[in-house]
């Protein structure tokens, strides 16, 4: 597990241990990666974050189009593994969790312990944490620094 924000580490470790999730990605709603577990290549993280944020954004738009319904988590269940994608809100701003899980656990466990993770993150969020600009001037530098932190390169 690697996290850019240190206060995310402990709750995320606990979630990974309890839920037995294979891959976890925490990001802001703009796709900026905060923490990851289970990814081995930075390219995969970037793609997953972009796609995850895109799916949540488009689902939100779809909900608005259909009368303002605010959809919760999305689940894609495959043959060998499932994907759980859930938006949530911290004082630092709107975040998204993307969890890939296999047959060694269940959607129920992932969902239950994800709820606990969100509660713990709400508790742990420093009061000084502020949402960052979606596209800051130094976005590319920031992205590069984040990926180095996430993969220890």
């Amino acid at each position: 597990m690697r996290a850019i924000e240190p206060w995310v580490g402990q709750p995320l470790n606990r979630f990974v241990e309890e839920s037995a999730a294979r891959v976890v990605l925490l990001m802001t709603s703009s796709g900026q990666v905060i923490a990851q577990h289970g990814f081995t290549r930075s390219l995969d993280v970037m793609s997953a974050a972009a796609l995850g944020a895109g799916i949540v954004a488009s689902t939100g738009e779809l909900g608005a189009l259909l009368g303002g319904e605010n959809f919760g988590a999305l689940v894609h269940q495959g043959q060998d593994q499932g994907v759980y994608l859930a938006p949530f809100t911290l004082s630092a701003g709107p975040w998204i969790g993307l969890v890939v899980y296999g047959a060694e656990t269940s959607l129920g466990l992932v969902q239950f312990f994800f709820g606990q993770l969100v509660s713990e993150l709400v508790e742990a969020t420093p009061t000084t944490a502020r949402p960052k600009a979606v596209l800051a001037d130094d976005f590319e530098d920031e992205l590069d620094a984040s990926l180095r932190a996430l993969f220890g390169e």
């Binding site: 656990t105 269940s106 129920g108 466990l109 969902q111 239950f112 709820g115």
Partner: peptide
């Protein structure tokens, strides 16, 4: 939800 998740596990 907790009962369901934990009991099935």
């Amino acid at each position: 939800a907790a009962i369901a998740a934990l009991s099935s596990s």
